[in-house]
């Protein structure tokens, strides 16, 4: 029973009860995890920020010249120097006596590989910057090339499965531990499938004076090979399997994890993605071995971080995204 009502959508858009750092009209693909992640980050950081954005999908899809989706001061430079740019802006703010927080953003390519030196320097000099890394596990912007974040056995254009090997030979770099090893006040991982947990961690990081780092696992429908509407479902499985542990590290020490209430076998996660389809080839013993290997990696994560939940927890993998009438999420 629908009755026609005239709605001034443009006016309604201005009255939304949340801050959108990125507005609509950006050119992200259907079901983009990074676009969602960046909007969730924007909600939690609020308007009083300056963004330093490394080259990558986020930079490309939000700013096709002469337009911008950003509603906060935003600066793009190069692939490798988001950390340096953010350090400079922060120093300038401090010199002017302003409290505006600087947020650096980059993908896994610019964080794990190309911009790592500048990021490391930013951490070492203890700039008051929140660095957000959107981790979609390959160079998606340039057409899906492997990065040091690409997980073991995943197919990319530069790690094709074939006679010699089953997708990427190497392992995913454990970036959050490397960041934590800088004696960083706060380094955490988050997932777009758990928006409340993500926003909570962003707010926590914003409160801290000094360098903070958050790695947000963000599904890429194009690069991972799943439908756009499955993004959240796939991403949730990354957490529930133990392949992407949600942890918080302060000064190098583990201070928080999201417990896994019910561990899901890794095949549930892998089989939904084309980048792992070679692992399900019939009659290939290497495929079976790689599946076992990936399961062992998940089990290892669960063991070293102590992710196995003890019964029902409101903030575990099942309870964290429970919905209520009226939309009262916990963060």
């Amino acid at each position: 029973m629908t009755t026609e009502t005239h709605i001034d959508i443009a006016e309604l858009r201005k009255k939304q009860p949340r801050f959108n750092a990125i507005d609509s009209g950006h050119r992200a693909c259907l079901g983009c995890g990074q676009a969602l992640g960046a909007r969730l980050v924007g909600e939690a950081v609020g308007p009083d920020i300056i963004v330093a954005n490394a080259t990558g999908c986020l930079e490309i899809f939000t700013t096709p010249w002469p337009e911008s989706a950003w509603r906060v001061p935003w600066m793009h430079s190069l692939f490798e120097n988001a950390g340096a740019i953010a350090s400079g802006i922060e120093a300038a703010m401090r010199a002017q006596g302003k409290s505006t927080k600087v947020v650096a953003m980059g993908g896994d390519g610019s964080t794990f590989d190309i911009g790592f030196q500048a990021l490391s320097g930013m951490l070492e000099r203890e700039h008051n910057v929140l660095y957000v890394c959107y981790d979609n596990e390959a160079y998606m912007n340039t057409g899906v090339q492997r990065s040091s974040s690409t997980p073991h056995a995943a197919m990319t254009n530069t790690s094709p499965p074939g006679k010699a090997r089953m997708g990427k030979r190497h392992l995913k770099k454990d970036i959050v531990q490397i960041i934590a090893a800088h004696h960083t006040p706060y380094a955490a991982t988050a997932s777009v499938a758990y928006p409340s947990d993500l926003r909570k961690k962003i707010r926590r990081a914003m409160e801290i004076e000094g360098p903070t780092f958050i790695q947000i696992h963000a599904p890429c429908p194009l690069g991972w090979g799943h439908e756009g509407h499955e993004s959240i479902e796939v991403e949730r499985l990354a957490v529930q399997t133990g392949l992407f542990p949600l942890v918080e590290l302060e000064r190098g020490e583990l201070t928080g994890v999201m417990p896994i209430r019910q561990q899901v076998p890794v095949t549930e996660y892998l089989k939904r993605q084309q980048r792992f389809r070679h692992l399900f080839a019939k009659g290939d013993s290497r495929a079976a071995e790689e599946l076992e290997h990936i399961q062992a990696l998940a089990d290892h994560n669960i063991e070293v971080y102590g992710l196995r939940g003890e019964g029902v927890d409101r903030f575990d993998t099942e309870g964290s995204d429970t919905v209520h009438r009226g939309g009262q999420r916990w963060a």
Binding site: S231, I232, V323, H324, R325, G326, G327
Partner: peptide
């Protein structure tokens, strides 16, 4: 249910 899921999860703020 007015749970905000669609509003929270839309990558395009649509």
């Amino acid at each position: 249910l007015a749970c905000d899921n669609c509003w929270t999860l839309c990558p395009d703020s649509a």
